[in-house]
Amino acid sequence: MEIRNPIPPFSLETALEKVQLAEDAWNSQDPIRVSLAYTIDTEWRNRSEFINGRENVVKFLSSKWQRELNYKLKKELWAFTGNRIAVRFEYEFHDIQGQWFRAYGNENWEFDDNGLMRRRFACINDLAIKEQERHIV
């Protein structure tokens, strides 16, 4: 049985820890490492894409980080209760042509009893920026 600490119900301390663990994993840009935080049958909505299952998470993230170069993410705890956490985030990246972007958004997370994320719903907006306008370096 897979367990991914911290497990719910979350306190302020454990919710903050869960958010930092997610930020660290995503900043590794390692799709397999990231996917291990999710249930085998995880459900995602990422922008207008619906992704189901850990295997598809790996495919999605592999493709994402081939397009989004020099990706750097910052997550912030927004709210938590029981087995749910809400975060706001921003990340920056550039495309193959060198155009930089900042993406802003919110995520709603739901965890199983073992601390694996079973549902992730993300709303994301992109803004083209100049390299010197980056916040996250």
Score class of each variant (00 low, 15 high):
residue 122 A to E: 14
residue 59 K to T: 11
residue 129 I to G: 05
residue 135 H to K: 14
residue 37 A to F: 06
residue 76 E to K: 14
residue 57 V to R: 10
residue 66 Q to H: 10
residue 112 D to Q: 07
residue 27 N to F: 03
residue 118 R to C: 10
residue 112 D to V: 01
residue 74 K to N: 12
residue 96 I to V: 13
residue 115 G to Q: 03
residue 57 V to G: 07
residue 30 D to V: 01
residue 75 K to L: 15
residue 27 N to P: 01
residue 82 G to Q: 03
residue 70 N to I: 08
residue 132 Q to T: 13
residue 101 F to M: 04
residue 65 W to K: 02
residue 60 F to I: 02
residue 15 A to G: 02
residue 81 T to R: 15
residue 31 P to V: 00
residue 12 L to W: 08
residue 109 W to E: 00
residue 79 A to H: 08
residue 32 I to C: 06
residue 127 L to Y: 13
residue 81 T to K: 15
residue 108 N to L: 09
residue 77 L to R: 04
residue 66 Q to Y: 01
residue 61 L to V: 09
residue 125 N to C: 15
residue 54 R to F: 09
residue 30 D to C: 03
residue 120 R to E: 13
residue 11 S to D: 10
residue 110 E to V: 05
residue 12 L to S: 14
residue 43 E to N: 05
residue 109 W to C: 00
residue 22 A to T: 12
residue 67 R to L: 13
residue 85 I to K: 13
residue 63 S to F: 12
residue 104 Y to L: 13
residue 126 D to W: 14
residue 11 S to N: 10
residue 77 L to W: 01
residue 23 E to A: 07
residue 20 Q to L: 15
residue 6 P to H: 03
residue 86 A to Q: 06
residue 137 V to T: 13
residue 34 V to Q: 03
residue 102 R to F: 06
residue 48 S to C: 10
residue 121 F to W: 12
residue 34 V to I: 09
residue 68 E to A: 10
residue 15 A to R: 00
residue 1 M to I: 13
residue 56 N to P: 11
residue 45 R to Q: 15
residue 93 F to D: 05
residue 73 L to T: 08
residue 105 G to W: 03
residue 110 E to G: 06
residue 13 E to S: 12
residue 109 W to G: 00
residue 9 P to W: 02
residue 68 E to I: 07
residue 14 T to R: 09
residue 117 M to A: 07
residue 20 Q to S: 14
residue 7 I to S: 11
residue 1 M to L: 11
residue 57 V to I: 12
residue 80 F to R: 00
residue 67 R to T: 11
